[in-house]
Amino acid sequence: MGKVGGGLVLVLWGSPGGERIARYSFIGIDPYLVMTHRGGTATLRRMTGKEQDSSSHHYTLENIPCHDPLEFIQAELGQYRLITPAGMAHDELPRFHGGAVGYLSYETAARFERLPVPERDELGLPEAIFSFTETVLVFDHLKHRVRIVTHLHLDAPDLEAEYLHTQALIENVRQRLRQTPGLPEEPAPLHDSETLRVCSNRTQEEFEAMVRQAQEYIRAGDIFQVVLSQRLSRHVNAAPFTVYRALRAI
């Protein structure tokens, strides 16, 4: 998830695998809700109002008790039921055209099962972040076209006003797509060897001790397979979107 042109967006890009092509990619625009989960608390960033201009959106922040982030997602999306317009072809809409997109960290598993979690939180990242969006750009790689998809609330007090708002929203997105995109400004490249040094979160002695302990567990019959890892990091003097594009090329 990132911020583009004054509004929040989320990207769900279909990656090709071998000779098979992922048909769809998605960009969610201006999520009406962003849920950030830490510990037993969920922070809700909720959009207020119905402005079409993304620069005019206003948000409220609310902290609520939340043990299991998936229960919150289920409750939020459970309020809605999709009604497909009559006469729409079965392939007019992809399986995803709005909803929740985000990530669950490894530590979130302790919310569902009795599993140990690290004693130290070295990165200080949220356990989960999910964005809820109603407006999505759907890239159809098979038909080479982009479709703007949004949702009409049939339980709105004034259905005609809701329909006009939806039309205006689609037109606003269309106009935004016609604008010349501004690429992020790239910082000056780094040349200092010390700054570019790759660092591990484990010393060689610590990692070798982990290997010996795993071997003992195997000999004792407690485990037959284990994945030992270390986290490598280095300073990157590049715009986040540039990092994303580089990761997509891997």
Rank of each mutant, 00 (worst) to 15 (best):
E185T: 13
H90L: 11
H67I: 12
S15N: 08
M88P: 04
E206P: 05
D140E: 02
V226I: 09
S55H: 09
P187S: 04
V117E: 05
E107T: 12
V9C: 08
M1K: 09
H97T: 11
G182L: 12
G78T: 07
A246Y: 07
L196E: 05
G28Q: 07
M210E: 05
G17H: 10
A42D: 02
I64R: 14
T43Y: 06
L159S: 10
N63A: 13
G49N: 00
I29V: 15
F139M: 09
F139N: 05
G7Q: 11
Y103M: 01
R120K: 14
R248G: 05
V198C: 03
V4Q: 12
T133P: 02
L125K: 10
C66M: 10
P116L: 12
E162K: 03
R81K: 11
H151W: 11
R38Y: 01
M88A: 14
A89I: 04
T84M: 13
R81N: 04
H67Y: 10
E185Q: 12
V149D: 01
Y59V: 07
K50T: 13
S105K: 04
G124Q: 03
L142F: 10
D53Q: 13
V136M: 03
L164P: 03
N237M: 04
L12Q: 12
V149H: 01
R81D: 01
E194T: 15
L8P: 00
L10N: 12
H235L: 15
R234C: 11
E71Y: 01
R114Q: 12
E216T: 14
D155W: 03
A42Q: 01
T242G: 08
I27P: 05
R120W: 08
T166G: 03
Y163M: 07
L169M: 11
R174E: 09
S55C: 07
W13L: 15
I73G: 00
S193V: 14
D155Q: 08
S56L: 15
V9L: 05
G14M: 04
T108Q: 09
A220Q: 11
M35I: 05
L115Y: 00
P69H: 03
H37Y: 01
L190S: 09
N172Q: 14
V146I: 15
T133D: 03
T48Y: 00
T48A: 05
W13T: 13
R23Q: 06
P116S: 11
I218V: 15
S131Q: 15
R147Q: 07
E76Y: 04
F26M: 03
A220T: 01
Y32A: 04
E206S: 14
K50M: 08
Q225I: 02
A156Q: 05
G2A: 06
A209H: 08
A168L: 07
S193R: 15
R212L: 14
T133H: 09
L190Y: 00
T166V: 06
H57D: 02
T36A: 10
G6K: 04
H165F: 04
F139I: 12
E113V: 06
D192M: 07
P189G: 02
P240F: 06
D222F: 01
